[in-house]
Simulated assay, not measured.
Amino acid sequence: MKRKIAVVISARASYAKFKSLLRHLKRDKKCDLKVIAAASMNSLKYGLASDIVEKDGFEIDYRVESLTENDSLFGSAKTASATLNDCAIIFSQEKPDIVVVMGDRYEVLPISIASSYQNITLAHIQGGEVTGNIDEKVRHAITKLADYHFVSNELARENVYQMGEDKETIFNVGCPSIDIAKEILERGNIKLNKLVTGVGKDLDFNSEFNVVMFHPETEFLRDIPSNIKHLTNILSDSDIPTVWFWPNSDPGNEIITKEIRAKREAGLLKNCLFVKTLNPSIFLYLLSKANCLIGNSSAGIRESNFLGLPVINIGRRQEGRERGENVIDWNFDSEESLLELISKFPKNDFSSGNVYGVGDAGKQISKILMEVELISSKRFQKRPLAE
Results as ranks from 00 to 15, higher is better:
residue 156 A to G: 08
residue 289 K to D: 00
residue 33 L to P: 04
residue 202 D to W: 00
residue 199 V to L: 09
residue 66 S to N: 05
residue 175 C to S: 14
residue 246 W to R: 10
residue 130 V to C: 03
residue 324 G to D: 05
residue 300 G to H: 07
residue 349 D to M: 13
residue 295 G to R: 01
residue 328 I to H: 06
residue 355 V to L: 15
residue 273 L to F: 07
residue 221 L to M: 12
residue 311 V to H: 04
residue 105 R to I: 09
residue 188 G to T: 08
residue 98 I to N: 01
residue 210 N to H: 07
residue 173 V to H: 08
residue 30 K to C: 02
residue 43 S to K: 09
residue 73 L to R: 11
residue 214 F to G: 03
residue 117 Y to K: 13
residue 249 S to E: 01
residue 368 I to M: 13
residue 241 P to Q: 10
residue 288 S to Q: 06
residue 252 G to L: 10
residue 377 S to G: 10
residue 282 I to D: 13
residue 106 Y to K: 08
residue 128 G to V: 08
residue 258 K to C: 13
residue 198 G to A: 03
residue 172 N to I: 00
residue 373 E to L: 04
residue 124 H to C: 13
residue 111 I to R: 04
residue 285 Y to W: 06
residue 42 N to I: 07
residue 269 L to R: 03
residue 342 I to P: 04
residue 272 C to Y: 04
residue 24 H to L: 12
residue 347 K to G: 01
residue 182 K to F: 01
residue 172 N to H: 01
residue 53 V to Q: 00
residue 196 V to S: 04
residue 268 L to S: 06
residue 327 V to P: 03
residue 370 M to L: 13
residue 198 G to Y: 03
residue 355 V to F: 15
residue 218 T to E: 03
residue 362 G to R: 05
residue 130 V to M: 11
residue 4 K to F: 10
residue 344 K to Q: 14
residue 379 R to T: 10
residue 22 L to C: 04
